[in-house]
Write a protein that binds this DNA or RNA. Structure first.
Length: 949
DNA sequence: AAGGTCACG
DNA sequence: GACGTACGTGACCTTG
């Protein structure tokens, strides 16, 4: 009996792109970039060491793309036409990929005129037809068409995503596409693919495509059925784009009958460590792999009988070591093992965990709650992480309320919290969380003042803001970080609790499942901390994290818990008034249009304005839809279109009503009677905060009618609101950072900066020139382009260019700032604020001009906007202690709006508080940075936020 | 789920 | 020669 054969086909080309984006830009000892090669090598290593496992390969080949041209280009010249060329530092790595493959003595297949996908398909079918199992190492959705279970004498075909460490079988394909693999091609043909430039049917995405194929059984079925559908956009598009869909079907079809250049038998793995490997690893400085080879541990092609927990690297490689270049060498931790997690169900065991945490001085924590809103949710359990796979979950409130008999054994919540409190509040133990602000707020409501804390999400932000690590995203959420840094796919909340209608509260989750999920979160947080915290010191992130963002966490948590009072009655009255006005306007607009339509639909409105009523205006954008935004409507109004003003008014009132007067009433917390926003510390790439649920950073102020909403933000009886804002902080920072003598002098003398700009530029100051100067000043901050400025000023591009030239001439330093900033970002990949906060710009050297220029503008702005964010954050951190020192312990800090802080305080404290607040804000850069310009502060107070301005 | 629009700094 | 053109956000609405 011959043993079971299992062929692995590695989609090498796809892999190296992903490895390139995921790994830091390492170089080998001779300076050639090898980041992607390193990723590829470790992947091959891992696959080859699986030789003796049940699902491991007996045969393996790597398939590469030889050229970008294939038979598909003959059918459709646009195929893959919009694909940008590979990044420059990836190009020299392609030949090295072949070297790496050869070093492992593995087969490497590439054929002129054939895409890797077609070769993979042909090899896979051929092997499966002989009864071999096949695993395709790729995550390409086109290849999912091939997946299938064993069927009689035909072997199974599945896929393996080595980055996500997940298998893709029939079930996964069905989950993704909603159809069997044999119909995946039909779905792909309908939805198209922007990466490969496969057209599909315009307007049909994955959801619609799946639905159509499910309903009609096939692409042809769906297209044939279109004629009988009831009138809709979809029907129209299916009929119109039928040919494109059919063409797409051909393009996504894999060619399964290619000649096989090397017979499959030749792919056999023989278990002997290949000779050329050592040399290859040495040449490229892959020292940790060399060590593994030397010590005989898991050498490729050989059985790996070692407990992975014992595979520990020597710490800290040299700088010439490719792996040590930008990342510290870390001990390799054992793989996540959820079965190791402990459910703590009695006080004795809880005390043991607390004792160990106290001794370790670092504990990862995570709270599980009944809802997302930290101001309303009930605590149902806490998990602790003390080490890799050393994590527990402590449930307090699990079990059905209706089935008392089913309630599992748990510790009493009050008793448990009383036992945990000394740990949570101990100065000697760092509590690490992923977004620990949330846990801080929950636990504060149960009487625990958690401190000191560290936050893996914030650390990730301070290291990697703006970095898109693997094309999937550059976010800082736990699931993403786990994937990126640990290569581990976490259980998601959705996995455990479901979503939509089937969502169950966490307290209803059975304890075994709850323990897996909750303890894993603590485990992953602990592991991420091991990864990320050391990077701060190595990569220069310590100052901004320790001095700005880390201390800010509890300050912001406090502001969120304070909330702000809004006057429900006055909001309700505004809503009512708006409703009356809105319905009047609706009638007027319908009358002017001559028919009823949905004014809130830009599409319908565009048709009415430009088709029905025949006003002049342009089409716009990919959707082929008329644009109807404010600027267009204002132009129409100037042309004498009465309907335009009505629509503008309608839009304004609808916006105010739905987004503010209605929504804010709904946001009042029934327990506290106040509105509690949630600030994100990682929301804006520049380092600014952002505010959600509700967003209190975009409350109207620019129009009189909107300002009424600010009047509804009020103080408690006997108190007032005080608003303090930095005046022109970004321009002041630009003057300092670009070292512009004229601007610095103007700020030092307290001049009107836009007027001074007008004087310098035009030699005269009036309303017009001042307004123009103001526009230009902003244009500078945002990264100028002559077309952009021309559009704003309503002048020709060359006139705008002349203004820019004058500006650069009158304010020398600005141009130098722009040039040097861009040079530095192009070279290093990131910009930096005066306090060392980095923002990464991975597209700064893009070949796509739009992408590149967009990055350039953002990169010019980021140091300025980011420094401003650093400064107000430093002020926030110092504010309450400074006030307390002056006996002003009753002042509460409520809101931050980028350059403004809002406080609530007893009326009698206002005069004493003002100078303290002003001093803290004005001096917030010190002592780290001494600015050449003063920071001006404007302060006002009154019964409402509106009145405080 | 995406695009358009608009509120803020 | 066209593209789309100022930086950073979040919420709501309509439509597919």
């Amino acid at each position: 009996m011959s043993e079971k054969q299992h062929l692995y086909l590695v989609d090498g080309s796809a892999y190296i792109f992903r490895a390139y984006h995921r790994l830091p830009p390492l170089t080998n000892p001779t300076g050639i970039p090898v980041g992607a090669v390193y990723g590829y090598t470790t992947m091959l290593w891992k696959l080859a060491t699986d030789l003796d496992t049940a699902v491991g390969p007996t045969h393996l080949a790597v398939i590469l793309d030889k050229s970008s041209q294939s038979f598909r280009n003959d059918i459709y010249p646009e195929y893959k036409a919009n694909r940008p060329p590979p990044p420059e530092d990836l190009i020299p790595q392609f030949p090295l990929i072949r070297d790496a493959t050869r070093a492992f003595s593995l087969a490497c297949i590439e054929e002129e005129g054939l895409e890797a996908d077609d070769l993979i398909a042909s090899y896979a079918r051929s092997a499966a037809s002989r009864g071999w199992d096949v695993t395709i190492v790729s995550s390409d959705k086109d290849l999912m068409q091939l997946v299938g279970d064993r069927d009689g004498d035909t072997g199974a075909i599945d896929m393996l995503d080595t980055m996500k460490n997940s298998r893709i079988g029939m079930a996964e394909v069905e989950e993704k596409f909603g159809v069997l693999p044999s119909l995946v091609g039909d779905v792909l043909a309908l939805m198209g693919d922007s990466v490969d430039n496969i057209p599909g049917v315009y307007g049909v995405g994955p959801k619609t495509a799946t639905k159509l194929i499910q309903e009609h059984g096939s692409l042809t079925g769906a297209l044939d059925a279109a004629a009988a559908m009831k009138t809709s956009k979809l029907k129209e598009r299916l009929l119109e784009h039928r040919a494109m869909a059919e063409l797409s079907r051909v393009l996504v079809t894999l060619k399964e009958d290619c000649d096989l250049p090397i017979p499959i038998e030749d792919f056999a793995l023989d278990g002997v460590p290949p000779e050329p490997l050592t040399e290859f690893l040495q040449t490229h400085g892959f020292t940790s792999l060399l060590r593994r080879l030397d010590s005989g541990r898991g050498s490729p092609g050989r059985a790996n009988d070692l407990n992975p927990a014992k595979q520990v690297h020597a710490a800290a490689g040299t700088n010439s070591d490719a792996e040590g270049g930008s990342r510290q060498q870390l001990p390799e931790l054992p793989a996540i093992d959820r079965s190791a997690y402990v459910c703590v169900q009695d006080m004795d065991m809880l005390r043991q965990w607390i004792g160990r945490a106290m001794a370790l001085r670092v504990v990862a924590i995570d709270t599980e709650t009944s809802a997302l809103d930290a101001m309303q949710a009930d605590l149902v359990g806490i998990s602790l992480g003390l080490g890799a796979n050393d994590a527990c979950y402590i449930p307090f409130a699990h079990g059905g309320h209706d089935l008392l008999s089913d309630t599992p054994q748990q510790v009493d919540r009050e008793e448990a919290l009383a036992a945990l409190k000394p740990l949570l509040e101990s100065d000697a133990v760092i509590k690490v969380g992923q977004n620990i602000k949330y846990d801080l707020n929950i636990l504060a409501r149960y009487g625990a003042k958690v401190s000191p804390v560290d936050d893996t999400m914030v650390i990730s932000f301070d290291l990697d803001a703006g970095r898109s690590m693997d094309g999937i995203g550059g976010g800082h959420g736990m699931d993403e970080l786990s994937q990126r840094h640990l290569g581990h796919t976490t259980l998601t909340f959705k996995d455990i609790c479901g979503s939509g209608k089937k969502l169950i509260p966490f307290g209803q989750v059975p304890l075994d499942r709850a323990t897996e999920y909750a303890a894993e979160d603590a485990d992953v947080t602990w592991r991420l901390y091991q990864h990320l915290k050391p990077r701060l010191a190595i990569e220069g992130g310590t100052r901004v994290y320790e001095r700005v963002d880390r201390p800010l966490i509890e300050v912001v948590a406090g502001m969120e818990r304070e909330g702000v009072k809004v006057d429900r009655a006055s909001l309700a009255k505004l809503s009512e008034g708006f409703a009356v006005e809105i319905s009047k306007l609706e009638q007027d607009i319908h009358a002017l249009a001559g028919r009823e339509f949905t004014i809130g639909s830009p599409k319908q409105l565009g048709d009415v304005l430009f088709d029905t009523l025949g006003y002049k205006g342009g089409r716009k954008g990919k959707s082929g839809q008329y644009s109807t935004d404010q600027a267009i409507l204002e132009k129409l109004a100037d042309q004498g279109a009465p309907i335009a003003n009505k629509v503008l008014e309608y839009r304004q009132l609808s916006k105010l009503k739905s987004t503010y007067t209605d929504a804010l009433q709904a946001a009042i917390n029934p327990r506290t009677g106040r509105v509690h926003t949630s600030y994100s510390l990682v929301g804006a790439q520049t380092g600014r905060l952002s505010s959600t649920d509700p967003n209190l950073q975009n409350i109207p102020i620019r129009t009189a009618i909107g300002r009424q909403i600010r009047e509804s933000f009020v103080a408690e009886l006997g108190n007032v609101l005080l608003a303090a804002d930095y005046s022109q902080i970004e321009l002041r920072l630009a003057a300092h950072m670009a070292d512009v003598p004229t601007l610095k002098e103007a700020f030092a003398e307290g001049q009107d900066i836009h007027a001074r700009t007008a004087q310098e530029m035009f030699g005269t100051v009036d309303r017009d020139t001042r307004a123009q100067a103001k526009t230009i000043n902003f244009a500078i901050l945002y990264g100028i382009s002559r077309w952009g400025l021309a559009g704003r000023l309503g002048v020709e591009a060359d006139e705008a260019q002349a203004m820019i030239d004058t500006y650069f001439q009158r304010f020398p330093g600005i141009q130098r700032y722009i040039v040097t900033t861009l040079e530095s970002v192009r070279e290093r990949g990131y910009s930096e604020t005066l306090f060392g906060r980095k923002t990464w710009f991975p597209r700064i050297n893009s070949k796509n001009p739009n992408e590149r220029q967009g990055s350039e503008r953002a990169a010019i702005n980021a140091p300025i906007q980011g420094t401003s964010a650093d400064i107000i954050k430093r002020a926030m951190v110092r504010m309450l202690p400074a006030l307390r020192d002056e006996g002003l312990g009753n002042v509460r800090m409520l809101l931050q709006v980028h350059d403004e802080l809002v406080f609530e305080l007893p009326e009698g404290d206002v005069e004493a508080a003002k100078p303290v607040i002003e001093a803290v804000m004005a001096g917030a850069a010190l002592p780290a940075v001494e600015l050449d310009v003063p920071l001006g502060i404007e302060i006002g107070s009154g019964p409402s936020w509106g009145a405080a301005h």
